[in-house]
Amino acid sequence: MNLTLYVWRQKNAQDKGHMETYEARDVSPHMSFLEMLDVVNEQLLLDGKEPIAFDHDCREGICGMCSMTINGIPHGPEKGTTVCQLHMRHFHDGDKIYIEPWRARAFPVVKDLIVDRTAFDRIMQAGGFISVNTGGTPDANTIPISKKAADTAMDAAACIGCGACVAACKNASAMLFVSAKVSHLVNLPQGKIEAAERVRKMVAQMDKEGFGNCTNYDECEAVCPKEIPVKFIAQMNREFLKAKFKK
């Protein structure tokens, strides 16, 4: 199939950036979306043009590196799928495809489709952990944890930190990302000890980074490649209120 691509090109953080048009010819339906871009890039390179820069690494949907908005939807049209796992069979000959970077004040564009997501790391550094040092921990079976609690924690912990939730939210809010970590840890007994301080610090850092507020669009949940539900945002709100009363 042949496709027309409209791609955001931006030389660096200072550049204003613009959309550019490319034709992708003879695209195989078996290709992944990134492989399609690889082929376009190979041609650009050989034509003496600058290839399109995009983040990617594991290409199996778990590292969270790949990040692009396809026709207005982060990671593209397939539910529960990162763009590296999105295959061209979901597109049709003659399609026009808009490819843009994540858009958020807290995720400034570095180049083309690559954005700076270190804001997420700083939120984690503010409190996304249990304060235990290596060594001296009790035997792993000392505290029984109900299967249900462990499963819920795992549901939240599945977050890959890609930032699609922010990119999809009309307010560029990071609530789903932050709540996934808060919920992961607070559903486990080990994580309850620091629960109040953790949620306070992580929310404060989230606000400081310039993310928007949650207005319950639920758009984040719809694009999350790990399908993390917004109920975790509710849980974080609850934990946040609890933390306020605790003080």
Binding site: T69, G72, R103
Partner: peptide, 8 residues
């Protein structure tokens, strides 16, 4: 929080 809008 989103100074640059999506084109699409």
């Amino acid at each position: 929080s989103r100074p640059v809008k999506y084109v699409k």
